[in-house]
Amino acid sequence: MNQPHIFHEIDNSMTGLKDKILLMASLTRQNLERAIQALLTRDIDLARMVIGDDSDVDDLEVKIDQQGMDILIRFHPVASDLRLVITSMKTAHNLERISDHAVTIAKRARKICKSSEPLETNIIEPLYTMAETLLRDALLAYTDANTDLGEGLKSCDKQLDAAHKEVVALLSSRLENSEGRAESLLHLILVARSLERIGDLAVNIGEDSVFLSEARDIRHDKRKSSDLGENPA
């Protein structure tokens, strides 16, 4: 809705809320990128930076929740305004969890870096590329109210899930003859797990973006349609 509110303070507050989401999204993506770089380039300092910077993302989540509450109390938003507040608060929560996964990756990277045994960390890179693309598209769906993009994330996430399974199977098979690399391989499996979870959280953001622009709740659509199939109305 492009038309401004008559009471301009509502627009100011809504814009402030969206700006904080965009800032949080930028920091989260940066944390994720740095965590993977730390892993791929064996950069312990970069991993430490990610772990330290996560508190900025945590603080922003709290600020977004406070601002959302403030808007609800002061302006009693309805319709698209209400959906923007609800969706922004949920998106902030999802971004905070994504940043937590970046921290998990950074911690695993730090441990892998400390091991003297070399490890083929680049196996993980395609998973990162897919998860990062999902996250980028989910945030675009939120900022541009792009329903098609938001709805399309589920199928992309399936590809990530399949790739995750392959990587875990490959790493698990190497565990048998790991010769002292078992711990690092396990760390890498957990990194893969975090990337897979980031894909799920990006899908959540995409689903919320569809609700934001069209008030359509597409969560659990698959289960809903199977329920209808079993118990037709």
Binding site: H5, P77, V78, S80, D81, R83
Partner: peptide, 19 residues
Amino acid sequence: IFSNPRVRKTEEYITGRFG
């Protein structure tokens, strides 16, 4: 009406965008 009105004019009115 207050979550997802069908008509743009309704949305503009209830969200305070009339004018």
